[in-house]
Design a binder for these strands. Structure first.
Lengths: 179, 179, 179, 179
DNA sequence: TATGAATGAGGTTTCATTCAT
DNA sequence: AATGAATGAAACCTCATTCAT
């Protein structure tokens, strides 16, 4: 990937996230990336192609996070693993994820793109099994609830400082009887 | 409010929610509302003015929902009240809220507008006090968590059928030791 | 003429003069006149009708100024009269004329309207005769020159203070051997 | 400067002058220039940017005319020079100046733009000094008067034929005792 | 006399995109 | 790989004007 192509990609993530996809013009991206507008179309064919490239990148990272969890077998470790990985992601790629999150929540269209390539359904199945093994009465509802929470918590952690992050994760773990 | 003005407002809520604000043209709104495009600007000055009117309406409803809770004193009733009112809103104005929710999550700009006029901070204070009185160890974190969840839960309920809705609310209440 | 009609007229003169005719919207006139936009059209039929009313008013004043000069017979008095009347107009209706002048120079269309109803040609004929009687070698050119100047001088006087006005008029008279 | 850009510029001068700035639409300019409307904005950013480009061009020409006069020292030559240069300009770029003049007199806004970049004040200072050296009693007023005249005369000459032009200039020179 | 609701036509400007170089 | 010139379509918005009341 050439420097200019990468510059386009990064500028686009930034602008799409902060201004919204529909609200960000290719001309603005070009200007802020220090690149001719035509180059965007050479490299990504479309404005939508540019979005796809970003989403693909995001899903790659997301899968890298989900995959190790999918390999786990001990039910308690699975649920605990979710929280630990959350903290890990937040700490190591905070900026990247901040942008990805806002981007994801911007329109059903974009959300769909994110969902398409992800391993989210595998994760849901795994969690449901874990809750069942742990003897929870309503594993489906528990899975629902924890997945809902994960998104909101993730978003919250991204804005918090290190101490706040750790104490909140610990709070969650104790609440869920995991440590 | 004249019929045409109301038609504009409703069409706009619908389109902004499903297609996104930036992605919905005033000409499309006019066409679907059966109205001249110029009328939109006569009544709302701007495309943004139209959005503001929608947000104002949404905040009014939201406050109508929060206000009765703010009047409560018994801590258990307060938390239980949140869930009951959630169900109430979902049942009585499902369509309206479905649209408002998607709209709210569409861009930081719009979210900010929603926040500006709301009584959300009052609700947070009340909940924190309730958790403290109930003897929770970490009232602030509990409040944080429940408020995070409420949004996600609300969104989930809006898509569920009546049986699913009720059973999930009951699940939440029992999880929170409230019934 | 009702109050509201007059208010429209005055606001229009003001705005047309400072912002230009094409650049002044009927809605702005209505707003600044404290009147509904529809009323403009009730009273003047058109935006152009409104302009016509203003021009008619301007020409009336202008004729009132030219007429007494047209009645003179002594050549020296005629030329001197021009300057004296200039000063008179400037002093008595400065605001009105300031507006009229800028308006007149704003577009060929408007200038044409002003010319149509005026007695300017009569004045030119009279001046030419006066210069001839006074023995000037080139009465036509002298008339040309003085008429050219009158517009510019008038515009200049409108911006000057009383002392400046008087001294400049005296300067002109002495230059023209008239006092 | 590409062909199309120049075509836009020339068409705009023409239309702004004959129809007025506010009354000339960018779509009309584009059509008559044989160019897409978007290109106007690519090259000049704004409708106002287009006007600015025209004014800049006009001021450049105007300065080219004033500059040689500013280098003169002999007072009589200075004043005579003004008339001669007037004739020169009228003869060599009549069309261009005709348009510029009408444009300049169309609105205070435009006139201000013209004034901003010009060397008019230098010319005024020079003339005042010249009149002083020639022993005129009221050099300031003389300068005022001649500058007023120059504008009007210029406008008049632009519409006159060659013979008329020459005879009027000669008339002026003799009147001002310069030949 | 006066207005508020409404509109068709057209205004300036921006958009995503193509093409020749 | 990279760009500058160019564009058709559509964006938001304003305009002068009409009509029912």
């Amino acid at each position: 990937m050439t420097d200019k192509k990468e510059s386009i990609l990064n500028t686009a993530i930034d602008l799409f996230s902060t201004q919204g996809y529909a609200n960000t013009s290719t001309s603005r991206i070009a200007k802020e990336a220090g690149v001719s507008e035509a180059l965007i179309f050479k490299h990504f064919k479309n404005k939508e192609g540019l979005l796809d490239a970003i989403v693909a990148q995001g899903n790659e990272h997301m899968n890298a996070f989900i995959t190790p969890i999918l390999g786990m077998t001990d039910p308690k470790s699975i649920i605990e693993g979710m929280f630990d990985f959350l903290l890990l992601m937040v700490r190591e790629h905070a900026d990247f994820w901040k942008l990805q999150m806002t981007l994801k929540y911007q329109s059903p269209l974009i959300a769909a793109k994110y969902h398409a390539a992800g391993k989210f359904d595998d994760l849901r199945t795994l969690l449901e099994k874990a809750y069942k093994e742990l003897g929870y009465q309503n594993p489906k509802a528990e899975t629902n609830l924890i997945l809902m929470m994960l998104g909101s918590v993730f978003t919250y952690l991204l804005e918090a400082d290190h101490i706040e992050q750790e104490s909140f994760i610990n709070f969650l773990k104790s609440k869920y009887n995991l440590s």
